[in-house]
Amino acid sequence: MTFFRPCIDLHQGQVKQIVGGSLSDQGAQTNFISQHDAEYYAGLYHQHGLQGGHVIALGPGNEEQVLKALGAWPGGLQFGGGVNHANAASYLEAGASHVIVTSYLFEDGQFSWARLDKIKQEVGVERLVLDLSCRQTNKGWQIATNRWQTVTDTIIDGATLAELEKHCAEFLIHAADVEGLQAGIDEQLVAKLGDWCSIPVTYAGGARSLADLKLVNQLSSGKVDLTIGSALNIFGGSGVTLEECIRWNQAEGAS
């Protein structure tokens, strides 16, 4: 069944919700800047037993907040953002349940199997999440790296996912074109992920209400989990409350 997965997005040392497609070296269009730090949100998720959430560092200047979050809930959160073979193990030691990697796996825009093998040796398949965040083009959905600025030649389809899922524990897929817009999920992508994936996968992008949890559950036959960010009340949104998401998870867990 589809579960709600929480998130903590960090940008320039603060917890924020941004419009994903706007992120660049100059900054980003911001929906929300929190008065609370990452440790507060990690503690909140821990308190309510919300497993499998992700902490994402969007660019530099977030290390202190990352370590606070991971320390507040050892084993409860995944971490991504600048992860590579040299630092991955340190984030696991700091408390991450898994490390999430994207950009490191690409060299000059091409997927690097050598780099994937290198990071697998450091952390193991069972603690590795591949972030296959993407942008839609006339070729389909293409993996985007470097804070979603660089669109690679790697297309997300059944063949790609079937090959990659042999090398990781989960997928995390942000639909960057709708991320932060609260204008609805990419329904076609969610349905395809339900068809293509046989390992856990979390989709993020465009979710705006509790109805989207029901929709993802329906479209993916319960195979895809959903992250809700900007629409959530704890991030200044009015579409859905954290309490509603907690109740949804409790109901799904009991079914």
Rank of each mutant, 00 (worst) to 15 (best):
W148Y: 13
R208T: 06
I18C: 02
G194M: 07
A176R: 06
G49I: 02
Q78I: 00
D195S: 14
N233V: 07
H167T: 08
D157V: 13
G71E: 00
S90Y: 10
A207D: 05
I8Q: 00
P74Y: 04
D212M: 05
I185E: 08
N138A: 14
A211G: 12
D9G: 05
M1T: 04
L213I: 01
A159T: 12
G184Y: 09
W248R: 12
F106R: 06
I56K: 06
L132F: 04
G81F: 10
A96E: 02
D157K: 08
E179M: 02
T241M: 05
V19W: 05
L164A: 07
L105W: 10
K68F: 06
V129D: 09
G20A: 01
Q142C: 14
F79M: 04
E179S: 09
T2L: 04
Y91D: 07
D37V: 00
E107K: 13
R115D: 08
L164Q: 07
L242V: 09
F171V: 00
E244K: 13
E170K: 14
P74W: 03
V178Q: 11
A69D: 02
A57I: 09
D225N: 15
A38N: 00
E243Y: 05
G52L: 00
L58I: 13
A114Y: 08
Q218E: 15
A183I: 05
T160M: 15
G81K: 10
A89K: 12
V19E: 03
G59L: 08
Q12H: 14
L105Q: 10
S24L: 05
I119V: 14
S22T: 14
A89L: 11
W141R: 14
H46S: 13
A231R: 09
A57C: 02
Q136W: 10
L219R: 13
I185A: 01
R208K: 15
K192F: 06
G52W: 09
S221Q: 15
H85Q: 13
R135E: 03
S22E: 02
A42S: 10
R247G: 10
T145W: 00
I56E: 01
L50Y: 04
H85C: 08
Q26V: 03
F79Q: 05
S209M: 11
E187L: 03
E93Q: 15
I8C: 05
P200T: 00
F4C: 02
W148S: 00
L105A: 07
A162H: 11
P200N: 09
